[in-house]
Amino acid sequence: MKASELRKLSTEELKEKVLELKKKLFNLRFQNKIGSLAKNSEIKQTKRDIARILTIIRERELTNK
């Protein structure tokens, strides 16, 4: 996901997206433990996507004050 795409979404949509990605990360970690994860890089990418979204949410909070 690109930051430019994420900035077009509303704050509520971003918060929903974070919840979805956290669930996905949990499942990826579980798959990794049992050995059925095909790409280990998915974990890293999902964590980065979560951080990117949280950064955008925080930027919006700071600009609205």
Rank of each mutant, 00 (worst) to 15 (best):
T11H: 05
L19H: 06
I50W: 11
S4E: 14
E20M: 11
E16Q: 12
K15I: 05
R48T: 11
K33E: 12
K8M: 02
L54V: 08
N27I: 08
L9W: 01
I53M: 11
F26V: 00
N32I: 02
E12M: 10
K22V: 00
Q31C: 12
L6S: 05
L21F: 14
L37P: 08
N27Y: 11
L9V: 00
A51I: 09
E13I: 05
K47T: 02
L37H: 06
L54Q: 15
D49F: 02
T46M: 08
R7W: 04
I56G: 09
K22Q: 13
I56L: 11
L21Q: 05
E42L: 15
L14G: 05
S41M: 02
F26R: 00
T11D: 14
V18D: 03
I34G: 01
K17V: 08
A38V: 15
N27A: 04
T63S: 13
K22D: 03
E16D: 13
L21G: 11
K2P: 01
R58G: 10
L19N: 14
L9I: 00
R58P: 07
Q31H: 09
E12S: 15
K23D: 03
E42T: 13
G35R: 11
M1K: 08
E12H: 09
K44N: 08
L6V: 01
K33I: 06
N27C: 06
K23Q: 00
E42S: 12
A38W: 11
L62I: 15
E61F: 09
F30A: 14
K2A: 09
I43A: 05
L6D: 02
Q45R: 10
K22G: 00
N27W: 05
N32T: 01
G35D: 09
R48Y: 10
K24I: 02
K24N: 02
R7E: 09
